[in-house]
Design a protein around this nucleic acid. Structure first.
Lengths: 220, 220
DNA sequence: AATGGAAGTGAGTAATCACTCACATAAAGT
DNA sequence: ACTTTATGTGAGTGATTACTCACTTCCATT
């Protein structure tokens, strides 16, 4: 992995944990790298310690169990996931004043925002996605954030769009599902399944926006 | 898990392995269940043996290593994944003779076909998806099947549709990506993320078809 | 300078791991 | 009936696991 710019790790972490000792930071850094490469269950604490350049005991000085370390890594990612939806600016910026193409603008803003987020946090998101399947606490925490923060914003966005633009007569949840899976599908394909493909990101994003817009537009 | 109808396991297996001894079948059955619940790395051979009601040594009589057992479970799923694309009937049935709405018909056929496949094989697909992330042999085998079997069929289908219907001017790979992620997104949401939600499958499938069709239709 | 608490250590521990092997049994071929 | 081969067993193996603990080192406060 690249040496420079490990700042983002601290950046993500300090939502919940304020200050990490240098060795603790090294532990988190090593854990993220190995967890994302081999998976949580296949990673041993001795390996993390070795990679971090600390004694194995040091891990357990800061984290009660190995799973505790995982949780402390994964939970802040869930918080960060919801951040753009918490910003009131997010919706206001789009529906503010001028009359430009609302639907496209909203989608473009959302996609570029999440595009940068995923780009910055591929390793962490890999861990989150993988381990969500096996740890119900993570599942529930994610569900809470989504249902309470993201979902309402999405729903009110669709409601506003329904008035301004002419949208197809699908249930709101269905429209949401289609839009979200298309965006998430793009990001997963782009950064996880085929990260080495020669992507023309701006073009692909515009195609994706057009696909969703037309797919949800009411066609007489 | 349900007791009845464990036939599908044998059904999937016997693509590569012809006959399993009763105890071997029990081992495979138990392994599938535990792998899909806890993940490959977190599952011990002693647990599999216990659940299967055999001695631990019996596992290694039939499979050289624990990973061997995983591979023998996962590989046939990849084969089965490609089956509908191998059948020449598949495309012929859709583009055969009459002039009905080609695009919708093709999508509907494809989605219902994969819907049934996923419904039957959720556990196996969970294992495949999860372990693909960590085992490069599985990755490569899947990639081979996709690139050599599924992809060409998709591409020729899009080519044929481009002539008959009016499709948007996206690159073929982009159209493919959008359609595939939408379908896969639906199936994963339906069977893995929210299997307990009160789905109205036929309606959701029709919405999904309409979404893809309009999303890829050329709008003047 | 003395003290106390936090940070860091690494040898040690019981449990569990994947896997082996000598042996028992069953089935099949001659 | 006899031999061979395939199937199944479970106690046993060394390696590795997550985690502990008595100890040292460091540093801030008195």
């Amino acid at each position: 992995m690249e040496q420079l710019d490990k700042e983002w790790i601290k950046d993500v972490m300090d939502i919940s944990e304020k200050e990490l000792t240098p060795k603790q930071a090294k532990i988190v850094e090593a854990a993220i790298e190995i967890f994302s490469e081999k998976g949580f269950a296949a990673t041993s604490t001795s390996e993390i310690a070795k990679q971090a350049g600390v004694a194995e005991g040091t891990i357990f000085r800061h984290y009660k169990t190995k799973k505790d370390l995982l949780i402390s890594i994964v939970m802040p990612v869930i918080s960060k996931f919801a951040v753009p939806f918490l910003a009131e600016k997010f919706l206001l910026e789009v529906f503010g004043d001028e009359e430009f193409e609302n639907f496209d603008a909203l989608l473009r803003k959302l996609i570029y925002n999440r595009y940068e987020f995923v780009k910055k946090n591929v390793q962490l998101l890999k861990i989150l996605i993988q381990e969500m399947a096996y740890h119900s606490e993570i599942q529930e925490s994610f569900k809470n954030v989504f249902v309470n923060i993201s979902l309402p914003k999405f729903q009110s966005a669709i409601k506003m769009l329904r008035e301004k633009d002419q949208l197809v007569d699908f249930p709101t949840e269905t429209m949401l599902r289609l839009a979200v899976t298309t965006i998430v599908g793009f990001l997963i394909t782009r950064f996880i399944i085929m990260p080495d493909y020669d992507w023309e990101d701006e073009k692909e994003i515009e195609y994706t926006i057009q696909f969703i817009r037309n797919g949800l537009k009411d066609i007489k």
